[in-house]
């Protein structure tokens, strides 16, 4: 049984459908990239998978083993209130909140994990700094470190490289690739970077007037890929 599968899934808000009849499935260890134009419903799909938004019709089926304890999530925009007093360390550590049972305080292991992810994303110097005083790209890295703390089975990323400089973008792709290949963590990533999608992913889901789901090879050979590329160039 696949780790996650959607059959005839319809997405939308307040009963108004945005995406119709979506069919796809993700196996453990897959690297899926979701592409599509602005407003096509990619973020909505991710929220539905996470259970933050009820589907209009259909169901997201998950493997019994995949409970919410192993999901890491990087939201598209941080909807965090602007004035919130929180240090980088506190935010990254809060990624360790998914536990099977209730623990009032973070364990030593949680702290080590947070420390490790802070180092991975080059945030060591900013550990004590206030989140709201960081640049957009730095904030993105903090939230990514938090997502990494939470992800032991599956990592959902909504446009993770937006606002990052080329060097960090490259590093980020290789971190994600390592998580996927070395630790077997399933990756579902929304991206507008089609080249990276083709380079790193196993499977591609295109959302638009027509949806496409298949392996990278199938995507490259399909009509949608050429049509979407042309549109990107014109737009």
């Amino acid at each position: 049984m696949p780790q996650l599968s959607c059959k005839k899934l319809c997405l939308g808000y307040d009963g108004r459908e945005i995406v119709h009849n979506l069919n796809f499935s993700v196996e453990k260890g897959d690297y899926l990239i979701i592409i599509g134009e602005n407003g096509s419903g990619k973020t909505t799909l991710m929220k539905t998978i996470l259970g933050l938004q009820p589907p209009v019709r259909g169901k997201v089926e998950t493997d019994d083993k995949l409970k919410k304890n192993g999901i890491g999530y990087l939201p598209q925009q941080n909807m965090v209130q602007r004035d919130f007093p929180a240090s980088v360390w506190e935010i990254v550590l809060s990624g360790c909140q998914n536990k099977k049972s209730f623990h009032p305080f973070y364990s030593k292991k949680d702290k080590e994990l947070a420390e490790e992810n802070i180092k991975k994303l080059g945030l060591t110097d900013m550990k004590k700094r206030c989140y709201r005083e960081l640049s957009g790209g730095q904030q993105q890295r903090v939230l990514l470190a938090r997502a990494l703390c939470a992800a032991s089975d599956i990592l959902l990323l909504d446009e993770p490289v937006t606002g990052l400089d080329p060097k960090v973008t490259e590093e980020l792709y290789s971190i994600i690739d390592e998580l996927n290949k070395k630790y077997g963590i399933t990756i579902i990533m929304i991206s507008h970077d089609v080249n990276a999608a083709v380079k790193y992913s196993d499977k591609i889901l295109y959302i638009g007037d027509e949806t496409f789901f298949g392996t990278k090879q199938e995507y490259i050979e399909s009509d949608i890929s050429s049509a979407f590329k042309k549109e990107e160039k014109n737009g």
């Binding site: 996470l50 939201p75 909807m79 919130f84």
Partner: peptide, 11 residues
């Protein structure tokens, strides 16, 4: 700090 993240990871 971030309700939707907390919800997403199972809190």
């Amino acid at each position: 700090f971030d309700e939707s993240f907390a919800e997403a990871v199972g809190t």
